[in-house]
């Protein structure tokens, strides 16, 4: 399986996402924001970072990139798309996911190992988790407060489209503790925390077993590989 990782001006975690794809057993393909060519990949990742310096709104200018025309078409045709942090912000700006992300309610940038509940295990990116499983992956954002109007929030919850919720601590003022959501089809997933930083023992969050041994993020990438094998 070939998974494209799109680099935008100001992307920071594109290389980390490529590494996560490789560790999960797929081939990462570096894609460029200024191109219209998805190079025949089977899935897409929009990585974290600060595209265009967060000018205008987080993810807003990147969402107008040439390659985003192809990303929207591919997503609507069912291709798995994962947006992490700034990538999640781009997916909302591109209207592939509802809601928006605003500045953390406490006004500060936050970086911590964050516990999440996986509430939806039927998406292309979460099928390898158990329903209700708690995972720990890094979170690092300044503008991660998820917001939407009450009707949209009710609809997301009613349709089971809240994929991840913050546990113990709501780190950024997100409404209803929402950390990540999916589209109706379950192929597009966006979340603020960073699964790609918890994929290799020695470089992940601390666990009860050992320091930096957490690899809870790996199942995002193995899930999508399994999905592609089932569909192939």
């Amino acid at each position: 399986m070939r998974i494209g990782v799109i680099t935008f001006p100001g992307s920071l975690d594109d290389r980390d996402a490529q590494r996560a794809v490789r560790l999960a057993g797929a081939e990462p393909v570096a894609l460029w924001h200024g191109s219209h060519d998805l190079e025949g990949v089977d899935a897409l990742i929009l990585p974290g970072g600060f595209s265009y310096g967060d000018y205008l709104r987080c993810g807003a200018i990147a969402s107008l990139s040439p390659i985003m025309t192809e990303v929207v078409s591919a997503a609507n045709a069912g291709m798995p798309v994962l947006g992490i942090c700034n990538g999640f912000q781009m997916l909302t700006e591109a209207h592939l996911l509802e809601g928006g992300l605003i500045r953390n309610d406490h006004g500060s940038f936050i970086c911590r190992d964050q516990v999440l509940t996986v509430e939806n295990t039927s998406t292309d990116w979460t099928s390898g988790f158990d329903a209700g499983q708690q995972i720990t992956i890094p979170l690092k954002n300044g503008e991660g407060g998820f917001i939407a109007d009450a009707d949209t929030l009710d609809r997301l919850e009613g349709e089971g489209r809240v994929v991840f919720r913050y546990v113990d601590v709501n780190p950024n003022g997100s409404m209803r503790d929402i950390a990540g959501i999916t589209n109706a089809r379950g192929n597009v997933v966006g979340l603020m925390p960073h699964p790609e930083h918890a994929v290799e023992p020695g470089f992940g969050p601390d666990t009860a077993a050992a320091m930096r041994s957490g690899i809870d993020g790996l199942a995002f990438f193995t899930s999508v590989i399994k999905t592609s094998l089932v569909e192939a």
């Binding site: 205008l56 709104r57 509802e98 809601g99 605003i102 917001i147 939407a148």
Partner: peptide, 8 residues
């Protein structure tokens, strides 16, 4: 459509 985001 561009200068503002009607969600926020």
């Amino acid at each position: 459509e561009i200068l503002s985001n009607s969600v926020i």
